[in-house]
Simulated assay, not measured.
Amino acid sequence: MTLLVDCLPAFFLAFKVVLWFVQAGSITRCHNWTDEMLDALAVLLWSAVEFVLVVTAKWLVPRLSLGRWRAESLDGSEGRVHGPAGALSFRRDGKRVLTPTGLLFVGVAFYALVGLAAAGLAALTESG
């Protein structure tokens, strides 16, 4: 449950961006409003993809590191207080802590490895 609560701000941010497009009037004022709507839809879609990547990494990191690493809360400011600017991870209380940006990289790397493994398995089954 806490994982869901930690990740809700990402969805709220995407929703706010779409509302901003509508409230700013750029969608109705523009003669080609489909471009603006597609941009808003792309932002919403990317937010969902980013949510999946970060949640996957947030679940994987403590398990693969056997508890030596942990993930920072997505709406927390722990990284700003204890880590250097722009850091992907930092050390605190003897544990490596991954920031949300670091979690995004871990999620992308995980799904890239899953994709490569699936492609390799498909190539093996096809040749055999």
Rank of each mutant, 00 (worst) to 15 (best):
V43T: 04
L104C: 02
V97G: 00
K95A: 05
G86W: 14
A71L: 07
R91F: 14
A57S: 02
G107S: 12
L103D: 05
E36S: 06
V106K: 08
Y111C: 03
S77L: 13
I27F: 03
G86Q: 13
L116G: 06
A57T: 00
F12L: 15
A24T: 12
A42F: 06
V43Y: 07
E50S: 14
W33Y: 04
A14M: 05
V5I: 07
G107N: 02
V55E: 08
F110D: 07
V5L: 14
A24S: 15
D39Q: 13
L8Y: 09
L45C: 04
V106T: 02
V49I: 08
D35E: 11
C7R: 09
A85Y: 14
A85D: 12
L8G: 01
L88E: 06
A57G: 00
A87T: 00
N32S: 14
V22L: 13
D35P: 07
S77M: 14
K95S: 03
L116V: 14
L121S: 02
L41T: 15
T56P: 04
S65F: 06
L19A: 12
F51N: 05
M1N: 09
V61I: 13
A119E: 07
L41S: 10
T28F: 05
F12H: 10
V97C: 02
W20N: 10
A112I: 11
E78H: 09
V55Y: 07
R70H: 06
S47I: 02
G83A: 00
A85P: 11
L45A: 03
L121Q: 09
M37W: 15
I27V: 15
L98K: 04
E50G: 11
L64W: 14
A122K: 10
L74Q: 09
L60G: 07
V49G: 06
C7G: 11
G94Q: 04
K16Q: 08
N32L: 15
S47D: 07
L13G: 04
R91C: 05
D75G: 14
E126Y: 06
A71H: 02
T34L: 15
R91G: 01
E126C: 10
A42P: 03
C7M: 10
V108W: 10
V49Y: 11
T125W: 15
L44D: 02
E72A: 01
P100E: 03
K16N: 12
V17P: 00
K58Q: 11
V114M: 11
R29D: 01
L3F: 10
F90K: 06
F21I: 00
F90R: 05
A40F: 01
A117I: 10
S127F: 07
F15M: 06
L41G: 10
